[in-house]
Design a protein around this nucleic acid. Structure first.
Lengths: 202, 202
DNA sequence: GGGGTCATGTAATAGGTTACATGATTCT
DNA sequence: AGAATCATGTAACCTATTACATGACCCC
């Protein structure tokens, strides 16, 4: 990916600017209120960095330095044609090409053997509780927005999250039972791995 | 997470060192050969950085500077008790606590409206092809290892990936048909969003 | 009208990646 | 023996995050 600015915050900026010029702070507020900070890692200072880089790359331009009331100057930025093209091209790529990613859980699963099986089962049980909580919260967000008249088009990310959460729950349950079932020989495999040190649970 | 070294590469290092002291290059090779680079982002230089930080934090210690043959000196590191505790505690946390993550697809879904519906459908179709390819590759890795006598305990990460891939495929198919089905009113919602510019497909 | 909080931006630092460097091994 | 490649490490650079700074607004 040879994008001039590869931070996904830039995608949000480009997208918002299709609606007209904005200044950075406004972009940040929109991101929060719109709930997009759930989809894109947002740090206040990163936004200014990203905006600067987008401007340097010619994807956005400063249009005016509107001074409203006694507020300090705020530079407003507008989308350029190149910026518009970048936005649609980038979106198409993100949708069309599956990316290899590195979720935390995958790393943990790769090194399961360093924990005793009982510990793994206990941890997975805790995870199932946590997953249930997250699922409830996410479903609540969708529900509330839907009641408020938001069209599902603007909730697809949350629907995706729900689908992934459900799949993860099923996987974890399956893993849990495979570990506990003596017929699968998991315990035996475990005993052939490193000698287990026992630590007091966190 | 207030871990002294929060890069997941460190988890791999700690895990490998439970088997005995190693020098950095050996750690890197193990990571590659063992296939763990599929689970943890691995960059040659990052390994040295991580090893230094682990040593500074007292989680590992340099044990000797074995000079073998004419090779340059290689510092070997061993796990300390603190390192062992860090490993198990970290693993338990990773397993037990679902992390909020930011996959690329979620960001794209959040801004679907900036693309015309036909473009989205076309991109999703391409993704389905790509997902099928990745699935085949992953299943192949699992199959080959299993035939080679590897116990499923050491393939859990890949099984997890497969589960997530399948769930994503189902989600994408569902999304695709919801967009195309005129009864869902998605087209109408789309027309109320930004004016669509058309760009030549990437 | 002064203390607290929000709005808005900048600077300092830390984390990680690319690119470079150097000696050993192998191949012909 | 010279070229190419592998082994191993370092350094320079870039990105992103945390921490700091400054003015406006709000509330008794």
């Amino acid at each position: 990916m040879t994008r001039p600015v590869d931070n996904l915050l830039a995608l949000a900026v480009l997208s918002y600017l299709t609606q007209g010029p904005m200044h950075p702070y406004e972009l940040g507020r929109t991101l929060q209120q719109h709930g997009d900070a759930r989809s894109i890692r947002y740090r206040h200072a990163s936004l200014y960095m990203v905006v600067d880089r987008l401007a340097a790359a010619g994807l956005i331009v400063a249009v005016d330095t509107g001074r409203e009331g006694a507020r300090p100057e705020r530079t407003r930025y507008a989308l350029t044609d190149a910026g518009q093209a970048e936005l649609t091209g980038w979106l198409r790529e993100l949708l069309a090409e599956p990316a290899h990613e590195y979720p935390h859980l995958v790393a943990a699963l790769a090194f399961l053997g360093a924990l005793a099986p009982e510990e793994v089962v206990a941890a997975l049980d805790r995870r199932l509780l946590g997953l249930a909580t997250v699922r409830t919260e996410t479903a609540g967000i969708v529900e509330e927005a839907t009641v408020g008249g938001v069209h599902p088009l603007f909730l697809v990310e949350e629907e995706y999250r729900l689908a992934m959460l459900d799949a993860e729950v099923r996987f974890v349950q399956g893993l849990r039972s495979r570990i506990e079932d003596p017929a699968t020989g998991w315990r035996a495999a475990w005993s052939r791995t490193a000698p287990q040190q026992e630590e007091s649970p966190a």
